[in-house]
Design a protein around this nucleic acid. Structure first.
Lengths: 329, 329
DNA sequence: TTGAAAGCGCTAACAG
DNA sequence: CTGTTAGCGCTTTCAA
């Protein structure tokens, strides 16, 4: 079917191994020869056959990504960035929407060079050991089994940064949106840190409503609940971008303006925070940074360079105009 | 690294070509021999090497799916179903989040057996001809270039069914939520059909607000706008599941009950329609049916069986309790 | 019914 | 620098 290196070799009048070398940009081929070969390859629309290459080189130049069952916007953006990053290093990214274990099996048969698993509370637990694969696996999003390396955001520090910021601005009563109860350990960690910070800083709680999910509608619901209290807080910290969207809707509807009437800060360091009116003070690890980090670690794992067990990424605080000094009333 | 057929052959005391046959369940191998080989393969945790297999057989048993840039819930469910369907036929599904053309190139190198493209208004236009691949490509979601087969829902008929239903219930004033203006041809078709139906049935328009997107929040906004009118409609037809979610929020908030105060019907035939309170009358092609159809067509394309140019799936109306006779007032 | 052997497209020694 | 050659793991004739 497709064009092979033999076709190119014939047309260029060289041996096909020379073509192979030239295509891989080997220094063992003369510049002119190389150029000529490249040109012919281009002309013929040559596409290397992954199967053949990976069969002999034991390397597929493919990274498999296990896509989480629940998809939130930030993850979607993150995966796109990781893909781009890897592409620069000649790797192709391929996704699977299967359950973690069967996805890993598929990737195994593909002989992918590494696997990235986006894990969330929704996907089923599984035994990594049982799979016993020698393909390096990197997890994102949760402290896992100590078997495979994990990349995660230092959520605790992020919340601390945010509360600290609001506290410095003089806020004495704050609410938090993003409490999913005990079932979700990721969110739980943020909630607990928030509570600890209130105590430590001597701040009164303005409510930490229990949510049913992380969609914008839940942020809307929680926001309404908080501002309708007899004595509402002067600042609200939201646990995610989507929740913040809903929160803004509730505030807007109630005729409250930010930051005059209330200060808003949000977890999730995504560019979209700037699209709010006003731009939202946010805390978290910039998505580009996470993507770069993930790509870099994957590459190191592929190269067999030793990697740490856990990478806890440091969050950053980006102060914008949605937060300001509390007005004494 | 992995276990190969040679390992199995050695352990079973047969030639490796026999193992190959046995594993493919060939009739050329005796039952007992076959069983023995199967058992050993299982025991050794044998995983066939896709690269090798596809190299020689010119078939990868992989179907590539080009994931749309904008992801809506229904598509996510659909892709999962298609995957399941294909899995039963021994095919593995792999996704790419790249732009259509580069995704197709990647799949080409993988020698996938077929490509499924979920197309939406957001992903960039491209020239299929330019790619000139001989891998069969199936599009979903829009009338395309007449080069490759397309599967699509008969949106026109769907809207007709819905309006007809509401009209029969005596509604004389209806609103439609889902108008994205002229930029989105898919939505445009539904809007236009709705308008035509109003004329044909002598129904008054209760508003067809222009939206900025298809998220739930837009449904909420439009819903509020519609019910706040001086003389609101007695029925609303929503253009998608997400919009309906937002619409319900708006109705709930305004203290309107469905279907006592207003009848609601929605496009998108997904199971989640039953989770509303009350369950929502919906119209569209059941997602399982779409998935089955897509999988079947892909399989036929792989087998070189000739397929039609366009498959326009017939929508179904599922009447639930969110719609009822108009109350004379 | 089983085994031997060729070869898919490519990379990587090794020779020249 | 360029060419020759041996496989990678598997399927598939062709022989036995």
């Amino acid at each position: 079917m497709g064009v092979t290196i033999k076709d190119i070799a014939k047309k260029a009048g060289v041996s096909y191994s020379t073509v192979s070398k030239a295509l891989r940009d080997s220094p063992l081929v003369q510049k002119p020869t190389k150029n000529k070969i490249m040109a012919i390859a281009e002309e013929l629309g040559y596409q290397p056959n992954i199967a053949a290459r990976s069969l002999v080189s034991k390397k597929s130049w493919v990274v498999g990504v296990v896509w989480p069952s629940v998809e939130r916007m930030t993850l979607s953006a993150l995966i796109t960035k990781v893909n781009k990053e890897l592409e620069e290093k000649q790797y192709t990214t391929v996704l699977s929407i299967n359950e973690i274990d069967s996805a890993i099996q598929t990737f195994q048969r593909f002989q992918v060079d590494a696997i990235l698993v986006f894990r969330d509370q929704a996907n089923s637990p599984f035994e990594l050991e049982a799979l016993d694969t020698n393909i390096p696996i990197l997890f994102y999003g949760t402290q896992s089994d100590q078997v495979s390396p994990v990349v995660d955001v230092n959520r605790k520090k992020a919340i601390e940064l945010a509360v600290e910021h609001l506290s410095k601005l003089g806020h004495k009563k704050m609410a938090y949106i993003g409490n999913l109860g005990e079932k979700d350990t990721l969110q739980q960690e943020k909630v607990q840190t928030f509570q600890h910070m209130l105590v430590r800083k001597g701040i009164e709680s303005g409510g930490i409503p229990l949510l049913n999910g992380l969609e914008a509608s839940e942020g809307y619901r929680a926001g309404r609940q908080i501002i309708q209290a007899a004595s509402p807080p002067t600042a609200i910290l939201s646990g995610s971008y989507d929740l913040t969207r809903g929160l803004f809707q509730a505030l807007h509807e109630a005729g409250l303006s930010v930051p005059q009437d209330i200060s808003i800060a949000s977890y999730d360091h995504v560019p979209q925070m700037l699209e709010f009116d006003p731009p939202v003070t946010s805390v978290g690890v910039p998505i580009e940074k996470v993507a770069e980090e993930i790509a870099a670690i994957l590459l190191r794992m592929i190269d067999q360079t030793d990697v740490q067990q856990t990478y806890l990424l440091d969050p950053e605080l980006a102060v914008r105009t949605s937060t300001r000094h509390r007005i004494n009333q």
